[in-house]
Design a protein around this nucleic acid. Structure first.
Length: 382
DNA sequence: AAACCGTGGAC
DNA sequence: TGTCCAAGGTT
């Protein structure tokens, strides 16, 4: 219902009138008092905790984050503690959570906050967004949740909620739609209400509504406090809005990996910048070209990269693992060294199996490490 | 703009 | 069992 605005051309027209925004927010706040979620990083007002939780929650579910958040805060309770940590320790605590650049950026941002911001968080969106790993959404989240700044947020939950409220039929990814949603978010969060709730609580209530009722499939409109304000509901389009682009197809890949044993140690390799799982450690691992023999690939690659000749045993186990648009089957072998020089490289290290726990491993690396330890218990004389 | 970056739970 | 999806950011 874009109506003719009688205001000056200097201020652009709003999606909703002030009256409509206030009525919606009043209903939202009332709903939130009873149904809003209570989460470990909320209601503390500590920007450090808000920041850690927001980074962990990027593209990651609340249930997956909670145990990581608790462990992380126990290890690094404050910003100075995180800044002083080794990056390897940060990655170890991130192991299994995915998107590992988040952990590297988190550590870098902690050090930048210490050296360039006197160890304190800025409250301005622009300053927050200048930190590595903090984009438009996360900056708005920290500013509003921790500092009660009237900063807009648009993420998966609010994106879906706003698209439905506005009845936006277009593809959500387009810049035009994104701009509309951000404008609408700013419109809502800057609306002055008679309730005492500030921007922080309003933003969290908006997200909770999106997360618990305005869900991707079968939204619970029957219990929603906003149906009176929802164009998608009015036109019965809750199930076709928001519209999303099709997902890319999955590709099958065969990888092969090997546990090379020598004097009770196993050879690990740290994955390099630009590779997948950069910074994590793994057993030597290679993609098998179509129609190639996995064992030949292992033998040649290890000889080329490490100068080691191997006696390779049969496949001992395998893991299936989905990653982005690939479905990987990982073939696992064990081997011993027949001839070859000691590896001279920072990327390679001989590690006792009891020290595996001190390394941040890839998920499949961890599974294989656990398998090796279990196998050692089964065959203690090997 | 579009591709890349991970993982596990829900259905 | 396969598909969808999550409190996004960077290049």
């Amino acid at each position: 219902m874009p109506r003719i605005s009688s205001r000056s051309a200097a201020s652009s027209a709003t999606e909703w009138s002030l009256q409509k925004r206030r009525a919606f927010l009043a209903a939202l706040i009332e709903w939130n008092a009873e149904h809003g979620r209570h989460l470990p990083w909320r209601a503390c007002g500590d920007p450090y905790r808000v920041w850690i939780s927001e980074i962990m929650l990027q593209q990651t579910t609340v249930t997956a984050v909670i145990p990581y958040f608790e462990r992380f805060l126990a290890a690094f309770p404050t910003l100075p503690a995180l800044a002083a940590a080794e990056e390897s320790q940060v990655l170890r605590l991130w192991e299994g959570l995915g998107y590992y650049s988040r952990a590297r950026n988190l550590h870098a941002a902690a050090q930048k906050l210490m050296t360039e911001h006197d160890g304190r968080f800025p409250r301005e969106v622009a300053a927050l967004q200048a930190l590595p790993g903090i984009g438009r959404y996360t900056a708005g989240a920290i500013a509003s949740f921790a500092f009660n700044e009237p900063a807009a947020i648009v993420e998966a939950n609010t994106q879906r909620l706003y698209a439905r409220l506005l009845g936006e039929p277009r593809d959500l990814k387009t810049t035009a739609v994104q701009q509309r949603l951000w404008n609408f978010a700013a419109e809502l969060v800057t609306t002055k209400t008679t309730e005492p709730q500030g921007p922080g609580e309003i933003n969290q209530a908006l997200m909770d509504l999106g997360a618990t009722l305005c869900t991707p499939t079968s939204p619970d409109c029957a219990h929603c406090p906003a149906t009176r304000y929802c164009l998608a509901y009015e036109t019965e389009q809750q199930n076709i809005i928001p519209r999303l682009p099709p997902r890319p197809q999955l590709t099958d890949v065969i990888d092969v990996t090997v546990a090379i044993e020598q004097q009770g140690c196993y050879l690990l390799r740290q994955r390099q910048p630009g590779e997948r799982w950069a910074g994590l450690w793994d057993f030597p691992r290679y993609t098998v070209p179509t129609d190639a023999d996995p064992i030949d690939v292992l033998r040649q690659q290890v000889h080329e990269q490490c100068g080691l000749d191997l006696m390779i045993g049969p496949q001992v186990t395998q893991f299936k693992h989905g990653v982005t648009r690939y479905r990987i089957t990982l073939l696992c072998h064990t081997a011993t060294v027949t001839t070859g020089t000691i590896v001279e490289s920072e990327a390679f290290r001989w590690v006792l199996s009891e020290d595996f726990e001190n390394y941040a491993l890839s998920v499949t690396g961890r599974k294989f490490a656990d398998w090796l330890i279990a196998a050692r218990e089964r065959f203690p004389f090997d």
